[in-house]
Amino acid sequence: MERTTFPGTLDSLEGIRLVVKEQAQQAGLAKKPTYALLLAVDEIATNIITHGYDENGGSGPVDVLISHADGKLSVTLEDDAVAFDPLKHTLPDEQFFAQPLENRPIGGMGIHLTLNGVDEFKYEYVNHRNRNTFIMKTEPASAPA
């Protein structure tokens, strides 16, 4: 398990993407799912920083935990902001995306891209921390002899 702690500010996003990318490459995740994972992590990290910390006048860390086992690459973001379940917010439906741009509400795209890009997404609130977990299936390692 790799754990990296970043300050909960927008200039951490690049570094967060970088550690996830490095681990995804090590895990042998293909280019396309890697991009989808980076996008998902970036979207949720942005929410944590802007909604969780900034809008509540708070600040704190974003911890990035990464592990790879049993054909699954797992990335977890942990933060100390107020409890925020991204799944509890209205998810955009097809109608949303069919709307002319001028009528579109501003939110909703990020969570849509998140859920669309990963094999599994989980939210938990444990020990006063938000835990957002992204799971990608990786190619099985070559069969043991």
């Binding site: 979207e43 795209m109 891209l113």
Partner: peptide, 12 residues
């Protein structure tokens, strides 16, 4: 190389 929904919102 990368664009998140924040960038897409700028397009909109």
């Amino acid at each position: 190389d990368f664009i998140s929904s924040a960038g897409l919102r700028v397009l909109i």
